[in-house]
């Protein structure tokens, strides 16, 4: 740890502030007394699906198709999740199966 305690506490407080702002701002901008504009309603309808897509890409942002292992551990684990989920529709099973597959691949097969 390189910071003093007050410095570390202030850093965390700033992160809390930033996070709270992003969570509360829409509710402050559109209080119950003000009708939600049609455009914002439309965004509320389509954004959740788009943002989940973004989060998947965000999690996979560091894989490279041009450098070994070419994103293969992620790709194979992705396929395992896809098959498990389409076949069983059990969230927990898909989650654990995919993660176990990935751990085995990076520990035993694609060892750097």
């Amino acid at each position: 740890m390189t910071m003093t305690f007050p410095q570390a506490a202030l850093t965390i407080a700033m992160v809390v502030l930033g996070t709270v702002i992003t969570r509360f701002l829409p509710f402050i901008l559109f209080p119950a007394s003000r009708p939600i504009p049609a455009y914002i309603k439309y965004l509320g309808e389509v954004l959740p699906h788009a943002v989940t897509g973004l989060l998947v890409v965000y999690c996979l942002r560091n894989i490279s198709p041009f450098r070994a292992p070419f994103g293969l551990p992620e790709l194979i684990s992705f396929a395992v999740i896809l098959v498990l989920h389409l076949y069983k529709r059990n969230t927990l099973l898909s989650l654990l199966g995919g993660t176990a597959c990935y751990m085995l691949l990076v520990q035993l097969v694609f060892t750097a």
């Binding site: 989940t52 999690c59 992705f78 969230t91 989650l95 993660t99 990935y102 751990m103």
Partner: peptide
Amino acid sequence: GIDFVLTALFIVIFL
């Protein structure tokens, strides 16, 4: 590789 659980979670939510 245990951190992949977060990725798997978002993939499952996406599906």
